[in-house]
Nucleic acid binder design. Sequence first.
DNA 1: TGAATAGTGTCTATTAGACAATATGAC
DNA 2: GTCATATTGTCTAATAGACACTATTCA
Lengths: 254, 254
Amino acid sequence: MVDNESNYSASNYRTPDGAPTDIVIFTIISKDRNTRKKSLPTRELNVMLIQRKIWPYESMWALPGGFTLETETVYACAARELKEETGVANVHLEYFNVYSELGRDPRGWIISHAFLALVDEDELAHRKADVDASDVRLFPVHEALAMDLAFDHKRILEDALHEIRKKMLTTTIAKEFLPEEFTIGELYQVIQTVVPEFAEQNFIRKITSTRSRKGIIEEVLNPDGTLKGSNRFSQRAAQLYRFTEVEPQLSIYS
Amino acid sequence: MVDNESNYSASNYRTPDGAPTDIVIFTIISKDRNTRKKSLPTRELNVMLIQRKIWPYESMWALPGGFTLETETVYACAARELKEETGVANVHLEYFNVYSELGRDPRGWIISHAFLALVDEDELAHRKADVDASDVRLFPVHEALAMDLAFDHKRILEDALHEIRKKMLTTTIAKEFLPEEFTIGELYQVIQTVVPEFAEQNFIRKITSTRSRKGIIEEVLNPDGTLKGSNRFSQRAAQLYRFTEVEPQLSIYS
DNA sequence: TGAATAGTGTCTATTAGACAATATGAC
DNA sequence: GTCATATTGTCTAATAGACACTATTCA
């Protein structure tokens, strides 16, 4: 450590024993419903947990993460741990809070940085080969919340859930859980999966034809210029949409 | 440091040299306009800076802050430094980001936690007695942004400004810059001071009588039940309002 | 009387909100 | 013909957006 001034006060004090990251990885798992006709799948919000092998909290389930190295930023650490522990790369990864309560980690004075990762379930499909599946698992969020997690990870998970719910309604992060091209029905389902109380009778009209929201998503066209549809979830083909670059600005005053 | 397991990996690595906090303290300064009749003041968003006395960045202006102690959370550290360095207590104080870029601090591997403090100018009035005014000063935000600040504090200030602008429009933080009871004109001015591009022709009607926003503020009544007005800024008395507990929920989808 | 802010009237276009109705196409 | 989703019609009430207008008070 550089310390070429006698009055540099921090050098007289204890320094932290580590600045790890904890990563709350959310994904939405779809299951076919086995109806007689084509239908939308059921969707469920899941969170990835890892079973600890060592002290402290040995054998308990915890959020993935690890200690930041002196050669990287906390964001780089989160990205590295995400790749190492779950095999996932190039996904939405976002810092959301710090946890520094005294005694939160029996290993010492450890200030943890919590990240939110949003992963499409297809990304996790190839993952399975990379990583031993026995100690890394997806849990439905309501199950994870009922578990006894290591450290203060239950609190972190609760905070992450609150954050993702807010962002689902105020930003376009829904796109992280959807393919490039999707139907209005899929988008609606994704929103409802994260925010169960969301309901909007005339959803399709609001999202496609009110002036203030127009531009968030746009219709996908075929090469020949006609509207592109999909009949993956229905007999009648549904219009496909994609998100644009537009990020809507919200205000309580206008 | 507790380390009773040989395979506790962090113990093999270097640990951070400190986890300080940096506090971006915003206030709005009002100045009377000296018009012939009563009038609204001009308002300007200011930020509090402190002139460094020691290495590194000696004599440069910087954000107030300091190192977190092992006996406190980062939030407690920010609150303590705020009190110690500026004499301000019991104000809105909110965590907003972490800064961990390599080489951001010549003293070593130092991960900083940035807070946003919102202070009413009246709070700062009594402060002046407590603290030596020569090395703690308020700067108009546009001036501060043009200065050469210590560390990465310019970047932190820019991020803080972005954050406060977003929150001004999406939450009720305007109340931090207003007295308990205020007029619509004052509220409108506060919003415009932080977000200059804000303009809303029928502001009074929207904020007081549209269903979705009704409840954010409420009229103040006199003890006898009549509407309470104020003629501090105008000949014609203006209705006084106060913020309620209601926090509006925004959504891009409805 | 006019400066300076406070607040209302009025008109049109757009949006919200609630339901009903129709469209599509494979099984 | 039926199922399951997709999409449009229709009606009323509420809100947006733009401007003009009136109200208040006191120096």
